[in-house]
């Protein structure tokens, strides 16, 4: 053996270091997705594809793989350095490196509210959320700093939407609350939620049934103004009214 120190080394190892190595290296307990893809429950074809993908992923810079433009959500397993490594816990794992099934963003497929069959009525145009002349194109309610109180100026806007929703029982709206960028993302999500709930309550008081309303929040994630000043923040503290299907 070229390295006569091996015996010394072993002695040190046996002396009980915290990081005691084993034959197959403690590093391998970190290996992810190290199972033979063929043993997964997936079809053989899927397994073959997965193996190819795993090889491709290993070969390529992962960032490049990830940078493929995609409109849908994609998930990916993490490829272990060694495809021959045995899993230490015996649990089954899926095909390594395989992309998960794309999950489409589930926008509602229901008809747009403007198509709900109000033709012939005198105020149909004015109560069509898609008609630019309608008051219903106004969808944005702004809020003061750290406030979810609805200002007086939005009363007629809310009354128009309530009137439409009362008439079109099939129409539904999602109320999206938003916050400015300052502070914690999760706390801002809760603040945005309070703003959408504030609009929810206002519409409820105008008689709109709960079944036609949902209040959700995007927190600080979807600013309409990109700046980092009060001018931008003022625009971003808001609730948006979205009709289902939009």
């Amino acid at each position: 053996m070229k390295y006569p120190v091996f015996a010394t080394l072993l002695a040190v190892l046996l002396a009980g270091c915290a990081d005691t190595p084993t034959q197959d290296a403690s590093i391998e307990d970190r290996a992810l997705a190290s199972k033979d893809a063929k043993k997964s429950a997936d079809a053989k074809a899927a397994a073959a594809t997965a193996t190819e993908k795993a090889a491709a992923t290993q070969a390529a810079d992962s960032a490049k793989v990830a940078a493929k433009p995609a409109e849908k959500v994609q998930t990916q397993g993490m490829v272990a350095p060694d495809t021959q490594v045995k899993s230490l816990d015996g649990s089954q794992a899926g095909a390594k490196g395989a992309d998960g099934k794309p999950i489409g963003a589930s926008g509602g497929q229901a008809g747009a509210p403007g198509q709900a069959g109000v033709a012939g009525q005198a105020d149909a145009v004015l109560l069509d959320p898609k008609n630019p002349a309608s008051p219903l194109v106004k969808r944005r309610i702004l809020f003061d700093y750290d406030s979810a109180a609805i200002r007086d100026e939005y009363r007629s806007l809310l009354e128009s939407h309530a009137k439409y929703l009362l008439k079109e029982k099939a129409a539904k709206v999602i109320l999206q609350g938003h916050a400015d960028e300052r502070g914690s993302r999760e706390y801002n999500l809760a603040l945005g939620q309070r703003r959408s709930e504030s609009v929810y309550k206002a519409l409820s008081l105008l008689g709109v049934p709960d079944a036609q309303l949902e209040a959700v929040s995007f927190g600080e994630e979807k600013p309409v103004a990109e700046g980092h000043d009060e001018e931008a923040w003022m625009q971003n503290r808001r609730t948006e009214i979205l009709y289902e299907g939009e």
Binding site: A33, V73, T75, M78, A93, K96, I174, Q176, E214
Partner: peptide, 15 residues
């Protein structure tokens, strides 16, 4: 992705 916040749990091994 569902036009509202939804909590997901993802398995890192197989994605």
């Amino acid at each position: 992705e569902d036009k509202k916040p939804v909590v997901y749990v993802q398995n890192l091994a197989d994605g």
